[in-house]
Simulated scan of single mutants.
Amino acid sequence: MKKTPTYFLFDIKNNTAYITVNRPDKLNALNTLVLKELSEILITLEANEDVRGIILTGAGDKAFVAGADIKEFQEFSSDEAWQLSKSGQEEVMDNLYTFPKPVIAAINGFALGGGLELAMACHIRVASEEAKMGLPEVSLGIIPGYGGTQRLPQLVGRGKALEMIMTGDPIDARDALQWGLVNYVVSQKELISTCERLLERIYQRSNMAISAAIRAVNIGLMEPEKGYEEEMDAFANAFDTPDFQEGVAAFLEKRKPNF
């Protein structure tokens, strides 16, 4: 990073970028400045060839991100609210969702509203046993604005998503695991190490193939009619890459590939 982040703790170790939302006194709530800074961090990390994956979490042991900074909403007009939703989705949530390197959300506490939307934009979610997740926006007379109405049904199905959105009630980590909202539930002390082990396994595979797979999966979800075509193209294009040559050679020589 060219400058020290204001709202984040940031570190890079062993090809992994650690991004920690650092507003524990506000339960790591999102506002426009936090989202802008996160967008800048993601742009930097995408261009950094030394970074192969990201772990995103929140400071402290109470919250991943407890939601948006509601005080910021008070004076917004509908036009300003629309622009907030648009910029948040396009510059942060969509960027995370389509990020060409694996991003794991380490959900260490409350992930509510925009916090859950942030976690759902990541590729994989690991939750601590104490975590609680929900979209309580209807309690404020609004609805989720950072992709929650679209990504939650993809993960838990239409019925459970509508229940969570319409009641606004959070669910605990075990229910989140049962419904497919998170991949793993672990103790708080094992949270980051579990994410690190997942990334270590991913790092043994081809970066190129992983990026292509992320893109193919995302296109299939966002534009189902184009998903199979994207998969066929990516599959074929892989045959012209050094990673394919190395992967096949390693398989035939009964050794680990050197990607």
Rank of each mutant, 00 (worst) to 15 (best):
K3P: 07
T4M: 14
T6A: 13
T6Y: 13
N14C: 08
T16S: 03
A17N: 03
T20A: 03
N22F: 15
L30E: 08
N31I: 04
V34K: 03
V34A: 05
L35N: 13
E37K: 01
T44M: 15
D50P: 00
D50R: 09
V51D: 00
I54K: 03
I54D: 00
I55G: 05
G58N: 00
D61Q: 14
A63Q: 06
V65E: 07
V65W: 07
D69Q: 12
E75Q: 11
A81F: 15
S85A: 14
Q89K: 04
E91Q: 14
M93S: 04
I104D: 06
A105H: 07
A106F: 12
G113D: 15
G115V: 09
E117G: 01
V126C: 02
E129W: 10
K132H: 12
G134I: 05
V138Q: 10
L140M: 11
G141E: 07
I142V: 13
G145V: 06
R151D: 08
L152W: 13
Q154P: 06
Q154G: 00
L155G: 02
E163N: 11
M166G: 03
T167P: 08
G168C: 04
G168V: 03
P170E: 08
D172A: 03
L177T: 04
L181Y: 07
T194R: 06
R205N: 14
M208I: 09
R215P: 08
R215W: 10
N218C: 12
K226R: 15
E229L: 14
E230K: 09
E231G: 05
A238E: 07
A238W: 09
D240K: 11
P242R: 01
D243M: 04
E246K: 13
A249C: 06
F251S: 09
E253S: 10
K254L: 12
